[in-house]
Design a protein around this nucleic acid. Structure first.
Lengths: 109, 109
DNA sequence: TTAATATATAAGTTTGTACTTATATATTGC
DNA sequence: GCAATATATAAGTACAAACTTATATATTAA
């Protein structure tokens, strides 16, 4: 079945390497070369993953001399946020309770 | 590359049919037969999607006579919630601003 | 126990995805 | 312009995923 807009972000983050690249970029921008050195895949593989992330708005890039600098786009997570927001409407108490638990957990670690 | 625990939920929700099944179940429990009637795929395909959702904790099921009744498990979304929570730590203002926008949007539609 | 119903599993097919190597394109410094 | 460097794209391969039909398993009712 063809990929739909709704599942695009899930799809993009479903691959471990691609997720790791996004997480790496969320801690600071990086060039393709730098990313390639961080992951056990070839440079073209990294470029392909970056293309996938870019196509669904999870990263942006700019040229800087010979390098392409990539950075994570928090706004790219909007669909995910939106989707979970939707479920908060359906299951308000349950999810809110869960959020509280998670927040506490975060604060104590 | 092998599927990791971190990407399991993303992977499960990355397929449009499977996402639609989960969303259907989030609006109320249903038997496999009922689900099969709602989607344009065969009964085995539905069972396979339910198996995938079940394996990562997004749905639970119980037998009721000859039927298997499936229901969505809000707790199954914990990894997603947790993951986004993590990004709130990194990008607090930005994401919080976004959350506010989304909440307003929800309330006015 | 036998037939009907409901679901799960097996096996096979097709398409998509993640990778590879090879090569094209863009930028810089000589 | 030419060589070096950085990235993207092309082409091919291997494996995973999503489906199909056929069949096995479980439950109910006669």
């Amino acid at each position: 079945m063809a990929l739909q807009r709704q599942t695009a972000v899930f799809q993009a983050l479903a691959d471990p390497t691609r997720l790791a690249i996004f997480e790496r970029l969320s801690r600071g921008e990086a060039s393709v070369t730098a990313l390639t050195q961080s992951f056990a895949v070839s440079q073209p593989a990294v470029s392909q993953h970056l293309g996938a992330l870019r196509r669904c708005g999870l990263v942006s890039h700019r040229r800087e001399g010979r390098s392409m600098i990539y950075r994570a786009r928090p706004e790219g997570l909007e669909p995910l946020q939106n989707w979970l927001e939707h479920y908060r409407t359906f299951w308000p108490e349950r999810i809110e309770k869960l959020r509280a638990v998670l927040k506490t957990h975060k604060e104590t670690t």
